[in-house]
Each structure stands twice: as C-alpha cells, then as structure tokens.
C-alpha cells in the first residue's frame, strides 16, 4: 500500500503533463461520443441539447424512408470497395517495380514523385481536375477530345462519368503513398532468398511470384482487412471538393460523409444528419471489430487488439 502511495506521489508531475492531451481527447473525442444521443432527440435549442425531448428511433425511421439512405450506403461501399481492390493491386505492382530499381538516384526520384500527389490538399486537387475537365476551358474538351474527333463533354453535369473520375483521382492521389508502404515490407525480405533463387536460375518473374509475393501477403491481407474495417468512412474531400459540391452529380458522388455534412451545414437538419452520423459510426465500429477479429485469426501479431 505504502509503495502504491509513493508511486502516485512520484508520478504526480507526470500526471500533470498528461492533462492537456487528456483534456483534448475528452473535448474532441469523448464528448462527441456522448453527444450522439442527439440522434434520439428532437433537438430544440431553446430547451438546450440535454433538455430536448426524447423521440427514440424517429430520426432513423425518417432517414431510412428516404431514397438517400440507400444511395449513400451503396455509393460509400461501392466506391471504397473499388478503391481497396484497385489501390491494393496498383500499389503492390508499383512497389514491386520500385524494388527492381537498383540505382540510388532513380529510387529516390521515383519514390519522391509518386508520393507528391499525396502532399497537396483536396482543394488544390479540385483545381487540377477542373483544369482538365472544365467544359469551356478544360484540357480534355479543348485539346484531347478534338484530336480524337469526339464532341466536348459536359463533365460537371453528367453524373455517369463520376465513378470513373473519382476512382482515377483517388488512385492518382493515394497509390504512390500506399506503394511506399508495401515497398518497405518488400525491402525487409532477406536478400538471401533472391540470391539462392538466382543461383538456381529462377527468372525475375518467377522470383516475384514465388518469393516476393508470398512474403508480403501477410502485409497485404492486414492492410486490406483494416481498409475493409473503414469501408463506411470515406475521404470527405474527394467526394466534396472534386465534384465541386455539385447537386446534379449527387446520385453518383454522394457518400455518407458528404450527406451528413450537407444535411447539417446546408439544411440545418440536425435530426437527419445526426441519425446518419450515428448509423455510420455504429456500423463502422462493428466493421472495425469484425475486421480485427479476422486479422487476429490470420495473424495475432498484426491485430490491433
């Protein structure tokens, strides 16, 4: 008992150090978790948030009666599902190619260039996309389509193109970053495997297939499962900034995050937006737990908990 008291006394200054960080976690993370109760209330600011009437699942009933609920769920899952598949295949291939580069200068050069898009904000990305796609002045309509003899396309008012556009932008921005992550795990493979394989006369392609690929499969599996755990959360900037918040495109660009944002900020609909937010948080949480369970089954070391 005495030693416990002594330990607390010794640690008092350290506990003081923790205060700002803990206070921030409470304000920024824990209070909003408790704030989720507003989804079950009819918020009335004159009564205050705590004093507003409880209405049970009414907000959720309204939400799931709208066509939006289906559209945003579908878009969120389809986009993020496609991103997981395409980005993983692309990033692993890119990492394998990067690993083939032996000259230090080129290694640096390629790595630096491919992660460059990751460094810029989505607002800037939306300017870059606009320079390509603007109907009157865009590079594609003005320079590329005429070369092919195709009529200009009004990109920003035709929703059917956006699944492709957003996927391409996502690849462009994220794949280099992800490939550097995979490259790190390829580099950590013991070079002796390759030396032995070369002595046995195995071709490059053969080595990639039977050494590199099997040895990085655990990392790929883990990263993929973690991404699946986050499939309900989208890159807000990609879906909000790149289509320039355009209503015409919403059927193919609206995801849960953008829906919640617009319902709250543009419509001031606290009931609907908080219900959609709770739906996202809760389903998202269940998915994280399930995917972690899957990771644990697969490899205990790589599980989050």
């Amino acid at each position: 008992m005495g030693s416990t008291a002594k330990r607390w006394k010794r640690f008092t200054p350290l506990f003081l150090l923790m205060i700002p960080g803990l206070a921030y976690l409470i304000v920024n993370n824990y209070l909003p978790m408790f704030g989720m109760i507003i989804a079950f209330k009819d918020v009335n600011f004159s009564k205050g948030i705590l004093g507003s009437d409880w209405i049970g699942f009414k907000n959720f009933e309204y939400l799931f009666k709208t066509a939006d609920a289906y559209i945003i769920t579908r878009n969120t899952i389809l986009y993020n599902g496609a991103f997981i598949v395409i980005n993983t295949i692309g990033a692993v291939s890119l990492a394998i190619l990067l690993n083939e580069i032996r000259k230090k200068f080129f290694q640096r050069f390629y790595q630096s260039i491919v992660i460059l898009p990751h460094l810029i904000s989505m607002v800037i990305v939306s300017y870059l996309v606009y320079a390509m796609l603007s109907s009157e002045t865009g590079l594609i309509n003005k320079s590329i389509l005429p070369l092919l003899g195709v009529d200009p396309i009004a990109w920003y008012s035709n929703k059917e193109y956006w699944p492709y556009i957003l996927t391409i932008v996502n690849i462009w921005k994220g794949i280099g970053f992800l490939s550097v992550v995979y490259l790190a795990s390829i580099i950590s493979i013991d070079p002796e495997y390759y030396e032995a394989a070369t002595i046995d006369g195995a071709s490059k392609w053969h080595q990639i297939r039977s050494i590199t690929f099997p040895l990085i499969t655990p990392v790929i599996t883990m990263m993929t499962l973690l991404a699946i755990g986050r499939i309900f959360h989208s890159d807000f900037g990609l879906f909000y900034q790149v289509p320039m918040d355009s209503g015409v495109l919403s059927e193919t660009t609206n995801v849960i995050d953008t829906y919640v944002y617009r319902a709250l900020m543009n419509l001031g609909d606290i009931g609907m937006s908080s219900a959609a937010g709770v739906y996202q948080s809760v389903v998202g949480f269940v998915l994280v737990i399930l995917s972690n369970y899957a990771v644990r089954k697969f490899s205990k070391d790589n599980a989050l908990f």
């Binding site: 993370n29 978790m33 408790f34 704030g35 989720m36 606290i270 908080s274 937010g277 994280v288």
Partner: peptide, 8 residues
C-alpha cells in the same frame, strides 16, 4: 476505433 461523428 470509434468516434461521435461530425454532428455532435
């Protein structure tokens, strides 16, 4: 693992 989301 868990967050309250934008609205709260």
């Amino acid at each position: 693992l868990f967050n309250g989301g934008l609205v709260p």
